[in-house]
């Protein structure tokens, strides 16, 4: 009896682990391929056929990308645009999400509806008008123009995200703080914000990655190299005469680094369960 039980449990655990493993392999394989190609010498790229690992590796692509291309500049631009967008969006979304979560105000339904509607348009439809607007106020070919557009497109979703985080924090907590002698703003800053840090970190991370990898608007709104972001730069490796895969992949790996670092930085806030113990339990 117990033997069959534990055997069943063992089989279940095994199946579970295998499923997780399969998922990880599928998810990470492209990344592995990216890495592999980035260290493969160009001469071996086509001659060795499909192999899991080249017979010889090289850092030459990396060296070229860092020293001889505009990539450091693209990186800097991407970093500026993504960080600014993430910060601005998170601040705006925290304020708006809190209001949506806690206050009843006139036109709330309309506002929610409007935010939803903005999420329904395919972005392609909006490129022409946005280009027109930005060029008339001189914001094409500028990083601030990109930040503005990215912020506008990310705010609605971020507001909903933040609202759901605020919704999960009991209203009693702020009320208790206000009775203890805090103003509503102090209660927000000292009680609610510390408890919503996971939510803010998630929003920050989400918006950062979205802005980091955005291509469409970056391509349409920026035509000069000195304001290009890295996804646009990546396309530079596709020339009329062919694609330099080694360098492109090396640039891709480098581009991953800031995103990974950023997530490492915020991951300690991403842990759940900060509100445990607030209420009866």
């Amino acid at each position: 009896m117990t033997v069959t039980m534990s055997r069943k449990r063992f089989a279940a655990t095994l199946a579970h682990r295998l499923a997780v493993l399969a998922f990880i392999v599928v998810a990470l394989f492209p990344l592995f391929w990216l890495l592999k190609v980035s260290v493969t010498p160009t001469k071996l790229l086509y001659s060795e056929g499909v192999r899991m690992w080249p017979s010889e590796t090289t850092w030459a692509h990396y060296a070229f990308v860092i020293e001889n291309s505009d990539f450091p500049l693209f990186f800097r631009n991407s970093l500026i645009v993504s960080l600014s967008t993430a910060l601005i969006v998170t601040l705006v979304a925290a304020g708006a999400g809190y209001a949506m979560s806690r206050f009843a105000f006139r036109g709330k339904m309309w506002l929610v509806g409007l935010l939803l509607v903005t999420q329904m348009f395919p972005l392609v439809m909006l490129i022409a008008p946005i280009f027109k607007i930005l060029s008339s106020i001189g914001l094409t070919n500028s990083l601030s123009g990109l930040v503005l557009v990215y912020t506008a497109f990310n705010v609605p979703f971020a507001v909903f995200l933040m609202q759901s985080f605020f919704d999960s924090i009991p209203k009693d907590l702020e009320e208790a703080a206000m009775i203890d002698g805090a103003t509503r703003f102090m209660a927000f800053r000292q009680i609610i914000v510390p408890l919503t840090l996971p939510g803010m970190a998630a929003t920050l991370g989400f918006v950062f990655t979205a802005a980091w990898s955005e291509l469409l608007f970056a391509l349409m709104l920026i035509s000069k190299t000195d304001a290009s972001t890295f996804p646009v730069g990546l396309l530079g490796f596709v020339s009329k005469f062919g694609v330099d895969f080694g360098q492109m992949m090396a640039a891709g790996v480098l581009a991953l680094i800031p995103a990974v670092l950023f997530f490492l930085l915020i991951q300690r806030f991403l842990v759940k369960g900060l509100t445990a113990g607030a209420v009866k339990g």
């Binding site: 009991p170 009693d172 907590l173 009320e175 208790a176 703080a177 206000m178 009775i179 203890d180 002698g181 805090a182 103003t183 009680i191 510390p194 408890l195 900060l274 509100t275 445990a276 113990g277 607030a278 209420v279 009866k280």
Partner: peptide, 20 residues
């Protein structure tokens, strides 16, 4: 008057303790 200026203490059914 806002709550802070009434100087009352309240015990909530949910306790509403500050978890952090």
């Amino acid at each position: 008057l806002p709550p802070k200026e009434r100087n009352l203490a309240m015990v909530f059914q949910s306790y509403a303790l500050y978890p952090h």
